[in-house]
């Protein structure tokens, strides 16, 4: 681990990706969660952008490194390269635009092609504040999420509704996967050797990183 994040204090670092069609509100979900900000005029994402925020899960500090990717289909070849190492994903659609929900299936495939099967996925129906414009019912989305075994939540980045819950839920679920893995490996998750990388799946590059001691490099 480089000095770049040496001044942080956390127990776990989880990489989470935000994916979904262009204009569904991925960047605003991220800015709401990481900085409690929202802007109708925030720039479209080119390539990928980042933000981090630490939260408490049980008695641990979990730092989420959230990757916000460009939504336009044409950039998928490049954005999929950014999935590497992700242990969680928020797959976002816009409840007022049905086509963005229809495309969720393609995004899911994309995600499963490029990440480990143990990745924690949450389907997120954003813009739930626009009640009069709703085009995707909660029931339909819920049914789809059940069928695909993903978590599901409706959010509004504008009204700050459920944003915190969505991210916290994903991070908590990842933490559980990681703890379970560690237990299965015979380790007490609270007493892992410093610097140990915890694989949540079979691929080496899918990992959650437990924070190492202060003098690590």
């Amino acid at each position: 681990m480089g000095a770049y994040r040496a001044d942080d204090d956390y127990d776990y670092l989880f990489k989470v990706v935000l994916i979904g069609d262009s204009g569904v509100g991925k960047s605003n979900l991220l800015s709401r969660f990481s900085r409690n900000e929202f802007s109708l005029e925030s720039k479209s994402t080119i390539g990928v952008e980042f933000a981090t925020r630490s939260i408490h899960v049980e008695d641990k500090v979990v730092k989420a490194q959230i990757w916000d990717t460009a939504g336009q289909e044409r950039y998928r070849a490049i954005t999929s390269a950014y999935y590497r190492g992700a242990v969680g994903a928020l797959l976002v659609y816009d409840v007022t635009r049905h086509v963005t929900f229809e495309n969720v299936e393609r995004w899911l495939k994309e995600l499963r092609d490029h990440t480990d099967s143990n990745i924690v996925i949450m389907l997120v129906g954003n813009k739930a504040d626009l009640r009069h414009l709703r085009a995707v019912s909660t029931e339909d989305a819920k049914a789809f999420a059940e069928k695909e075994s993903t978590f599901f939540m409706e959010t509004s980045a504008l009204e700050s509704m459920n944003v915190e819950n969505a991210f916290t839920e994903v991070l908590t679920q990842i933490y559980r996967v990681v703890s379970k893995k560690a237990l299965e490996a015979g380790d007490d998750p609270a007493a892992l050797p410093k610097g140990q990388t915890i694989n949540v799946g079979s691929k080496d590059d899918v990992s959650a990183v437990k924070k190492v001691g202060c003098c690590s490099s």
């Binding site: 480089g2 770049y4 990928v48 980042f50 490194q65 950014y82 490099s217």
Partner: peptide, 14 residues
């Protein structure tokens, strides 16, 4: 010097 890996480098460049 900080041994940036791909992710850290991408974040740094951004």
């Amino acid at each position: 010097g900080e041994e940036m890996d791909f992710d850290t480098l991408l974040k740094f460049i951004n």
